[in-house]
Amino acid sequence: TEKQERAIEYIRRLGYSEEEARRILKKANGNPDLAKEIARRIG
């Protein structure tokens, strides 16, 4: 989804690889607090 793409872009800007960014997002899917934090940061 567009939100996922924005989140991946944001995480990659922090210096993670695409693969790492996707792994972090997968974790965020099972972790509402982390997901909220990422969403808050990407606006």
Rank of each mutant, 00 (worst) to 15 (best):
G15I: 00
R6V: 09
A21M: 04
R12E: 06
G30H: 06
A28P: 01
R12G: 04
A21D: 00
L14G: 01
K36G: 04
R13Q: 14
P32K: 03
R23Y: 14
E5H: 09
A39M: 03
G43R: 14
E20R: 06
T1F: 11
R6C: 06
E20Q: 13
E5R: 12
R40M: 14
R23P: 00
A7D: 03
L34A: 07
N29D: 10
E18Q: 08
Y10L: 05
A7W: 04
R12A: 05
R6M: 14
A28Q: 02
R6P: 06
R6L: 14
I24G: 00
A21G: 03
K27R: 13
R40H: 15
I11E: 00
R40P: 02
K26E: 13
L34D: 05
R12N: 04
N31R: 06
N31Q: 06
R22C: 08
R40Y: 09
I24F: 10
R41N: 14
G43E: 14
A39N: 01
Q4M: 10
E2F: 06
K36V: 15
Y16Q: 02
I24W: 04
R12P: 00
N31L: 05
P32Q: 04
K36I: 15
K27V: 14
E19L: 11
L14Y: 06
K27A: 14
D33R: 10
A39H: 02
A28L: 03
I8L: 12
K3A: 15
E37G: 05
N29V: 05
G15P: 00
I42W: 13
I38Q: 04
R6D: 14
T1P: 10
L25K: 00
S17L: 05
I11N: 00
N31H: 07
T1V: 12
A7G: 03
Y10M: 06
A35P: 01
G43T: 15
I24D: 00
G43H: 15
K27D: 12
I38W: 05
L34F: 06
A21Q: 01
T1K: 12
R13D: 13
I38P: 00
K3L: 15
E2A: 12
Y16C: 04
I24T: 02
E9M: 10
E37A: 11
L14S: 02
I8K: 04
G30S: 05
L14A: 03
E9F: 07
E5K: 11
T1R: 10
E2I: 12
R22W: 13
G30D: 07
R40N: 14
I11M: 09
Y16S: 01
E9V: 09
I11C: 02
L34N: 04
L34C: 06
Q4F: 07
T1N: 12
A7R: 01
L25Q: 01
A39S: 03
R13M: 14
A35Q: 01
A21I: 07
P32R: 02
L25P: 00
R41Y: 09
A28Y: 03
Y10I: 06
A39Y: 01
E9G: 06
R41P: 06
K36D: 03
K36E: 08
A35L: 03
E2W: 06
L34Y: 07
A35Y: 03
E37P: 00
K27T: 13
T1Y: 11
E18C: 08
A7P: 03
I8G: 01
A7M: 05
I24A: 02
R41L: 13
Q4D: 07
A21N: 00
Y16L: 07
E37S: 09
A28D: 00
Y16E: 00
E19I: 11
I8V: 11
N31A: 05
K3F: 10
N29Y: 07
K3E: 15
E37F: 07
E5N: 10
E9C: 07
R22M: 09
K3D: 15
L34M: 08
R40A: 11
T1C: 13
I38N: 04
E2R: 09
L34G: 03
R41M: 13
A39K: 01
A35W: 04
R22N: 08
R13E: 14
S17E: 05
A28V: 05
Y10A: 07
K26S: 11
I8S: 02
D33W: 10
K27N: 10
P32M: 06
Y16I: 07
E20L: 08
E37Q: 10
I8A: 03
G43I: 15
T1L: 12
D33E: 15
E18M: 09
S17A: 05
G43D: 13
N31E: 06
I8C: 04
S17Y: 02
L14I: 06
R13G: 15
A21S: 06
R23Q: 14
K3I: 13
E2T: 11
N31G: 02
Y10Q: 06
D33V: 09
A7S: 05
I11G: 00
I42S: 13
N31K: 05
E37L: 09
A39D: 02
R23C: 07
R6H: 12
E5M: 11
A7Q: 02
L34H: 06
P32I: 11
I38S: 03
K26M: 12
E9R: 11
I24P: 00
E2K: 11
G30V: 02
A28W: 03
G43Q: 15
Y16F: 15
A39E: 02
A28C: 05
A21R: 00
K3N: 13
I8P: 01
E20P: 00
G15L: 01
E9K: 11
N31P: 00
G15C: 02
K3M: 14
R12F: 04
T1Q: 11
A21V: 05
E18K: 07
E18V: 08
Q4Y: 07
N29L: 08
R22L: 10
I42Q: 15
E19D: 13
I11V: 03
A7H: 03
S17G: 06
S17K: 04
I11K: 00
R23K: 12
E19A: 13
N29W: 07
P32E: 07
A7I: 08
P32S: 08
A21F: 01
D33N: 09
N31F: 04
E20A: 14
L14K: 03
R23V: 12
E20W: 09
